[in-house]
Design a binder for these strands. Structure first.
Length: 473
DNA sequence: AAAAAAC
């Protein structure tokens, strides 16, 4: 669980430890069980603020330790203010954590359970797509902490199996995602079920005007906690682009996976059909792949995720259901099979790698048709992404024309792996720009501090060289 | 233009 960081990676001068926050021994013991002694930056900031009872507006991406940042102080607050109210439920719901996807709810719940295991507090997770009865039973038995997706939560409220009238703390995790998914009416309905007097914590990776509006509407004098710059990509992630043909995209992915020997990679597709299709294609190529998307049953989704975590599945082909929040430790690489339409999704997708200070690779494929998306992405992240050649991979028709354009040796061109399905070569035009490294516009600065830093890291140096070392201003 | 989420 990369939610907290081990002592060895802590580099702040006077190292803060979890025991410095005045957390209960039972919480510290749970942290010790997992080998965590030192908080991540967001935890060091958030824990004292939440303990003091403030509302929080948190700007944090996945992998920063956000979950522990809010769940540890919540557990502490619930322990400190013991429940004195009598029945009906001896355990009224006192903290509610909302997440946009079922998988994220499940994972936050796992964390909460782990951190509260030595306390008398009980928690449960509530989401759709699965049998309601076990959830109802858990709620009947009594829980202090509920982690939920909005739809099923409201369902339980309607069935009167859940009462939120004593909920003192509300957390909205990945609030930007919830808005994107049209949860605003549900969120408002849920907020109306809560007592007026309560503590609100809201976390978001990006800051649109809508998010700010939502924050203004229900946070009271929030303390802002910012860890990563919003809309920024981590600089420990090496981003590259490969231009491909539509027809050879799937083969290109298989090639990249083989070439790099990838054993833990998420491949993002823009569509559910595309994800399933690519997964099947990779399986035929002998790659241990599985697809995860919203048309799969909840059981299939959980099985795919579990198999991926266990390693029996090496390539998880996913829609944006997996772009945010999924807690998969230290993913070394993500691949964008399609460029996302929403440039912020690019940030979220590649946020799946290079977590907690580890380095990572973000590889994106793009076709002529995706020029617009690419421009939007580079505008959002405020720098260009290196265009590289796909070495040793011969896109069928493009490769045949290679020698004509750049005078490259045609001998290195491989035989096509699978015969063309259509047979008729329709695509005549080869973009010569694909065949040479990307060159920045002459007006752009050539010498940047980042270029020097990059030289200490071989892979980055290669990219920086091709790029001309250019973060665009 | 597409994804996710309640039945």
């Amino acid at each position: 669980m990369p939610d907290t960081q081990p002592a060895t990676t802590q580099n702040a001068a006077p190292a803060v430890r979890f025991q410095d926050f005045g957390l209960a021994d039972s919480i510290l013991r749970a942290l010790a069980d997992q080998g965590y002694t030192h908080p991540t930056p967001i935890q060091a900031e958030a824990i004292p603020v939440v303990l003091r009872g403030h509302d929080v507006m948190g700007a944090a991406q996945t992998g920063t330790g956000k979950t522990a940042g809010f769940s540890l102080p919540i557990i502490q607050l619930l322990l400190a203010h013991a429940n004195t109210s009598a029945s009906p439920a001896r355990h009224p719901v006192r903290a509610l954590i909302l997440t946009p996807t079922r998988e994220l709810a499940d994972q936050v719940a796992d964390n909460v359970k782990a951190y509260s295991r030595h306390t008398p507090l009980r928690s449960t997770v509530i989401f759709g797509g699965v049998d309601m009865n076990p959830q109802t039973a858990a709620l009947r038995a009594g829980v202090e902490i509920v982690i939920a997706t909005p739809g099923r939560l409201l369902d339980h409220v309607q069935q009167k199996t859940l009462n939120l009238s004593q909920t003192q703390i509300l957390v909205m995790d990945e609030a930007d995602r919830m808005l994107d998914m049209g949860f605003l009416p549900d969120l408002q309905r849920i907020i109306n079920l809560l007592p007026r007097e309560r503590q609100n914590l809201m976390f978001s990776a990006t800051f649109s005007p809508e998010i700010k509006k939502l924050a203004n509407s229900f946070l009271k004098n929030p303390v802002t906690i910012e860890v990563a710059r919003s809309n920024a990509t981590a600089d420990n992630v090496t981003q590259v682009l490969y231009k491909v043909d539509e027809e050879t995209k799937a083969d290109a992915v298989a090639h990249i996976i083989r070439e790099r020997g990838l054993k833990q990679v998420i491949v993002f597709s823009n569509t559910k059909i595309g994800a399933s299709r690519l997964s099947r294609h990779l399986q035929k190529e002998g790659v241990k792949a599985s697809a995860i998307h919203g048309d799969k049953t909840q059981g299939e989704r959980m099985a795919a995720l579990e198999a991926f975590k266990q390693g029996s599945v090496e390539v998880l082909v996913a829609t944006d259901v997996a772009a945010r929040g999924l807690d998969i430790a230290e993913l070394p690489c993500v691949i964008n099979y399609d460029l996302p339409y929403n440039p912020e999704d690019y940030v979220h997708r590649i946020g799946r790698t290079g977590r907690a200070g580890a380095s990572g690779d973000a590889i994106s494929l793009f076709t002529d048709k995706e020029a617009r998306q690419l421009a939007d992405i580079e505008k959002l992240i405020k720098h260009t992404i290196a265009r590289l050649q796909l070495d040793g991979f011969a896109p069928r028709r493009a490769s045949e024309r290679r020698s004509r354009h750049e005078g490259e040796e045609g001998g290195s061109v491989q035989r096509e792996r699978s015969p063309s399905r259509s047979g008729s070569p329709r695509r005549e035009k080869v973009d010569p720009w694909f065949l040479k490294p990307y060159e920045p516009a002459p007006s752009e600065p050539r010498e940047e501090p980042e270029a020097q830093a990059a030289q200490t890291r071989p892979q980055k140096a290669k990219v920086a060289a091709l790029l001309g070392g250019v973060p665009k201003r």
